[in-house]
Amino acid sequence: MSVNVTMKVNGQSVSATIEASMTLVEFIREHLRLTGTHVGCNTSQCGACTVHINGRAVKSCSLLVAQAQGAEVLTIEGLAAANGDMHPMQAAFKEHHGLQCGFCTPGMVMSACELKGKLVDPTDEQIRASIDGNICRCTGYQNIVTSVKAGLAAMA
């Protein structure tokens, strides 16, 4: 069964006729070819596919495209400025070596950005607890925690 969907992705209106069973991450990667959003598990356990929908971080593998009907979707490609200047959270990850292979990174950054407003001057433990839905196999998380802390401070 096909459905029509319309949404805003990174500020641009998109509409498409797609299979109703298509997940949002599949739509983002395969249909829109925004391949910065990754798939690490497809079962909503790793966070690699995290994007924002109406400002909230969600795992895009666990949503059907239709569930994002009319929504504002922000992917990692939409976070930096149009000229490529990085968002403060992205800059913090670079500054504090919060990434290695880069595969978990887009999801991690999207999850981290959402913490703004939720955590005020957070402790390491609070940050660790807040990103426990995102798996990183490379970094051991420590530099991610430092990055998130710095990124949140820079966003304030």
């Binding site: 925004l34 391949t35 910065g36 990692i76 490609e77 992205q90 670079k94 990434l99 595969f103 887009p106």
Partner: peptide, 21 residues
């Protein structure tokens, strides 16, 4: 030294095998 590769990974511009069609 901060990593040269980071900008592409942080902005979603990495190119992993599954990204290639």
């Amino acid at each position: 030294v901060k990593r040269k590769e980071d900008h592409r990974f942080l902005t979603g511009n990495g190119q992993y095998t599954d990204d290639i069609i």
